[in-house]
């Protein structure tokens, strides 16, 4: 598979979860393990351009696929507008749900660059945050939409390539 644009390979047990492969084998610990039941969304990564919950994807199922994690949001030392939005609008507190939230937000903005509050709330509704009450996450994603300067679109091409 490729992870954040780099080819990686490894022999794994058939039962190994993608979240554990990323965290333990590749040491990409920005992807978190929160619930095992696809409810919390701290483990969200992209697989072939689509957000998935990596606690319910087997590493073997990701073979040959293109994975993007939070570590792949920053490109050439430049934070993604979503990352900047989370900082500017206080969209995070403990930071545990943040990587998954940001990856879903990036996907939303790639497909809907000017989402309404309702559309943002729908998009992140499969993920749980215990700190922010969601308000500032919504504001952060709106901030990113308003401050993208074409940055997001450029990123989309890179990732989709």
């Amino acid at each position: 598979m490729t992870v954040n644009g780099e080819a990686v390979s490894g022999e794994v047990e058939p039962r190994l979860l993608l979240v554990h492969f990323l965290r333990d084998n590749l040491r990409l610990t920005g992807t978190h393990w929160g619930c095992d039941t696809s409810n919390c969304g701290t483990c969200v990564v992209w697989m072939d351009g689509v957000p998935v919950k990596s606690c319910t994807v087997l590493a073997a199922m990701a073979s040959g696929r293109d994975i993007r994690t939070v570590e792949g949001l920053e490109v050439n030392g430049e934070l993604d507008p979503v990352q900047k939005g989370f900082i500017e609008m206080h969209g995070l507190q403990c930071g545990f749900c943040t990587p998954g939230m940001m990856l879903t937000a990036r996907w939303l903005l790639d497909h809907n660059p000017d989402p309404s509050e309702t559309e943002i709330r729908e998009a992140i509704s499969g993920q749980i945050c215990r700190c922010t009450g969601y308000e500032n996450i919504v504001r952060a994603i709106r901030w990113a939409a308003e401050n993208s300067n074409g940055n997001g679109a450029a990123m989309k091409e890179e990732v989709g390539a």
Binding site: R23, R27, L28, T29, G30, T31, H32, W33, T69, V70, E71, L73, E74, L79, Q83, F86, I87, E88, H90, L92, G95, F96, T98, P99, M102
Partner: peptide, 21 residues
Amino acid sequence: VIRKEDARFVRGKGNYVDDIV
């Protein structure tokens, strides 16, 4: 003031117990 700790968290570079090896 924006938070000092956010720089690491938005990059996935927080250091939680399960990240320790």
